[in-house]
Computed example of a mutant assay.
Amino acid sequence: MLSRRMGLLASASLLATPLIQTRGAQAQADWRSRFRELRYGVIGSENERDAIARLQGLSVHAERTLGVPMRIFRGTDYAAVVEALRSEQLEFAHLGPAAYALARRAMGEGVIPLLRHQANDGAEGYYSVIFVKADSPFQSLADLRGRSFAFADPNSASGFAAPGYFMRKEGVDPARHFSRTGFSGNHEQSVIAVLNGTFDAAATFWNNEQSGNIQRMVEKGMIQPGTTRIIWRSPLIPNSPTVTRAGVPEGLRAAFVRMMLNLHVEAPEVLAQISTNTARIVPARHEDYADLIAMTEQNQAQRRNRS
């Protein structure tokens, strides 16, 4: 059941003829009669308390705009959100790029990308970075040979898929280069694990000098500024997609997309709550994630070959 794997958060032109107008109104009425409540899932990249605060505004705005309540669910891990979507316990979900690749493996064309964020500087992507404690002696990947390393989640793009793939392209096989690797559970836990000395280094997401997981943790008072240092950065990763499942009616899908595309105009305060680094929401396509899907498939093949 959804409640067991996901933590609940509190949550155009004029129509040509009267006949078309009637059909359009009927379609709207149909989806609202079928969906007395909408369910939106998010991956657990941060702690539950902060996710509740960050997404509460979207829940309120969605009910006001769409005319039905929208409840927000946070996954206990990335795969939980994909499973909830596959089992039709969600209508919409915000996935990481690698979690989208997992959804495509599980659902095929039954999962449909709709939207992604565009940053304040116009970028539609972000980076994986490897970081260490600021006062550590490590300056490069070579310095981390024989040391311990934390990934975030096996279905995280910046926390596992991208660093593993690009490190191997640089001739660094994580399974052999590090003395020990493990999964922290999420991006915030990776930072805490490095600062506590549980791991010597870890991977997380980074947008620019002003925005990323580490900067967000500083802003929230979870860590002190200047306590970490980045020693490696990946090529650009496409921003995380917001998706739906194929069974969601077109009328509902169109209404949701229209609401999200207009957030920067109609509810900029809600958009700012979701992400301070997002200028607007823009459309996404499956093709945007083709390279990332190939990357995750290669990572999975590497893991199978070692098991």
Rank of each mutant, 00 (worst) to 15 (best):
T228D: 10
Q28A: 05
L9I: 14
S307R: 15
K169W: 03
Y40R: 00
R5P: 05
A150R: 12
R49D: 10
A161W: 12
N207T: 12
V191L: 10
R180I: 04
Y78F: 08
L236G: 03
V82P: 07
E188K: 09
R4C: 08
I230Q: 13
A12P: 07
M260W: 11
A29I: 01
R253A: 01
L252P: 00
Y127T: 06
I214R: 09
R216N: 14
A10L: 07
F151R: 09
H177D: 01
S128F: 05
Q189F: 03
Q215P: 00
A27R: 14
T198C: 00
F205D: 13
H117L: 06
V129K: 02
T65L: 02
E88K: 11
A301C: 06
A267E: 10
T242F: 02
A290F: 06
G125A: 07
G7Y: 15
D173M: 11
Y78S: 10
R54T: 08
D288P: 11
A142K: 11
A29W: 00
R147A: 11
A53G: 04
G44F: 00
F131E: 06
M217E: 11
V111P: 01
S11L: 11
E46C: 04
H61C: 11
I274W: 03
E269F: 01
L15I: 05
M295K: 09
T204V: 11
L252Q: 00
N305M: 10
R5S: 14
T242H: 08
M107F: 00
I20L: 14
L263R: 06
I130P: 05
M259P: 15
D143M: 05
M1L: 05
R23V: 14
D173P: 13
A99Q: 07
L263A: 02
Y127G: 01
I52G: 01
F149R: 09
T276V: 08
R32E: 00
A123V: 04
